Simulated scan of single mutants.
Amino acid sequence: MADLNAGSVVAARNAADVVTTKMTARNVNVYYGAKQALKDVSIDVSQENVTAFIGPSGCGKSTFLRCMNRMNDTVASARVEGEIKLDGEDIYKGGMDVVQLRARVGMVFQKPNPFPKSIYDNVAYGPRIHGLAATKADMDAIVEGSLRRAGLWDEAKDRLGESGTAMSGGQQQRLCIARAIAVDPEVILMDEPCSALDPIATAKIEELIDELRGRYAIVIVTHNMQQAARVSQKTAFFHLGTMVEYGDTSMIFTNPSEPRTKDYITGRYG
Rank of each mutant, 00 (worst) to 15 (best):
T135N: 08
A156W: 00
C176Q: 09
P116W: 02
L147D: 04
I142A: 03
M167G: 05
V143I: 05
D140H: 00
Q172D: 15
P116A: 08
A166L: 14
E155P: 05
A134L: 05
W153L: 06
L160Q: 07
G131A: 04
R148M: 13
S146I: 11
K111C: 09
N122C: 10
S163N: 13
K136Y: 05
R174E: 15
L132A: 11
F115T: 06
R128V: 10
L160C: 13
A137P: 04
Q173H: 11
L152F: 02
A141E: 10
M139V: 03
D121N: 15
G169E: 11
M167Q: 15
G169T: 11
M167I: 06
L132T: 13
D140M: 01
S146V: 01
A124H: 10
S168T: 14
V123N: 11
G151M: 00
R174Y: 15
T165R: 10
E144L: 03
H130C: 09
A141M: 12
R159S: 03
I119L: 07
G170N: 06
G161F: 00
I119C: 10
G169S: 09
D154A: 04
G170K: 08
W153A: 02
A134V: 04
E144G: 03
H130T: 03
E155T: 06
E155L: 01
G170C: 13
R148Q: 06
Q110F: 10
K157C: 07
Q173D: 01
A124C: 14
K136A: 14
G126M: 12
